[in-house]
Write a protein that binds this DNA or RNA. Structure first.
Lengths: 250, 250
DNA sequence: CATGTAACTGTCGGTAGTGACAGTTTAATC
DNA sequence: GATTAAACTGTCACTACCGACAGTTACATG
């Protein structure tokens, strides 16, 4: 007896994973199309977000829903309160839609609104943490009964997880390549150094001594870093730098 | 033709994933034993590390190598220079051992030393980024020929990746539970608040206005936070807080 | 040779952060 | 009712930070 409901052909799955791993699917829409062709899923959504003092800032968003659904969702600020987003972006474990919905009965109107714009009730959100402290997720939804979904998910969660990780890696690599073009906002080696030492609690005078330069020069680099990061204090600059992994992580 | 060399029984794999997902394998050695029983792999290593001003600090280390191998590896400071660690802890893509070795011919003595202490030449390191900016990896090695490994890996990378993610989630959840016990070093809600606003570039006066308290009180909370985090400046405190995810990520 | 970028420096005046002094109030727990 | 933890406040003196002033030097690239 095959315990996996409607299990997708294994060879097709391995081929998909090969394609994604070797960068053959760097375009989000191309990746989404391949996923929908290979698996029995309805919609995908990739979201990259960044924490700010004001709340969650959406950095990157790709999905297979219509432009109308996106407009509705974002314009109502639903991304600021959606409990599935909060769970997925704050953890590392896959988040199931249906149990999450039951856990947050106070958000029922939100879930009903989501159904109106075409989101199904069965699905899973895979957290994709980046080294930078930035977070992303890939949400996968299917038009299945709870029983069907449960079996399907059991068979293919591993495929979803690996595909999500590899696609996320492609996205990050592209973002890194894009960042190289932004000459003005890229930190120089000295700017990175002074930020690193400042994050280690050193004062201007100490950093100057460590680097063997004048205190004024340390202030100069720090001030350039502040300007490039568009922040107002060293503290904010360091917070930004740590979050964006602009200062060495290893 | 089955293109997967020595493919492991699918049912056993799904059972393993179920066990790991539902927390039945929170003990590292238990998880490692189950992985070795299910897959045709030789050794596993789980490493959680934290970036510091001085370099990479190993926070958590579990593996199936002997105590002698660990002592040799750590005492020589190999974890500070191992290119596989650097690649895995700095990225999100699985790192293959053999290609990494070819990419870093200057590290050949290191790889030879690793072979001496029982590490095989075929394997993969799966990066496991945490929301905190802390990083972890699960390394899996097998005693196979390059061809065998290539086929085996193709079939089971998805299983390794999902198992690694779920095990990592268990580790993080346990670490979080442990942290709750450390009463003295836990930040209070006000301390967290002032750190958050400071990370957003606000001055004492601004934070006082935002929170509706006196400037002196903001200084009081900030000073308590500095003492608890064992740092000397607000900047260092914020860097620490961002790295340890002590201030809200969402 | 011109252009641009990064690294580097000095001084001044104002604002922000930091440590040490010495407290009060509120709420929960034993 | 005593104890503890957290939230809260005032003042003083010192140090650190930050913006704006106005530069020099070294090196690569067109």
């Amino acid at each position: 007896m095959n315990r996996c409901y409607g299990m997708t052909n294994q060879q097709a799955v391995l081929d998909l994973l090969d394609i994604v791993e070797y960068g053959g699917c760097a375009e989000p829409q191309q990746f989404f199309a391949l996923m929908r062709r290979t698996f029995d899923i309805a919609h995908l959504l990739y979201l990259e977000a960044e924490p700010t003092a004001e709340g969650l800032k959406v950095c990157r968003l790709h999905h297979t829903f219509g432009a109308y659904a996106e407009e509705l969702y974002l314009s109502r600020g639903l991304h600021r309160i959606d409990p599935i987003l909060r769970l997925a972006l704050g953890g590392v474990r896959p988040v199931e839609w249906a149990p999450a919905r039951r856990r947050f009965p106070e958000c029922e109107p939100l879930f009903e609104a989501a159904e109106d714009i075409g989101l199904s009730t069965e699905g899973v959100a895979l957290p994709l943490p980046s080294p930078a402290g930035r977070m992303a997720l890939l949400a996968i939804s299917a038009n299945m009964s709870p029983t069907e979904w449960s079996e399907y998910r059991r068979c293919h969660l591993r495929d979803f997880q690996l595909a999500a990780n590899l696609f996320h890696a492609s996205m990050l690599e592209r973002a890194m390549a894009d960042a190289i073009d932004e000459r003005d906002t890229r930190l120089t080696s000295r700017e990175t150094e002074v930020l690193t030492w400042s994050a280690a609690g050193k004062s201007y005078w100490e950093i100057a001594t460590i680097l063997g330069i004048s205190e004024r020069t340390v202030r100069f680099f720090m001030s350039n870093a502040r300007r490039k990061l568009n922040v107002v204090s060293n503290t904010q600059a360091v917070a930004q730098a740590v979050r964006h992994a602009l200062i060495p992580t290893i």
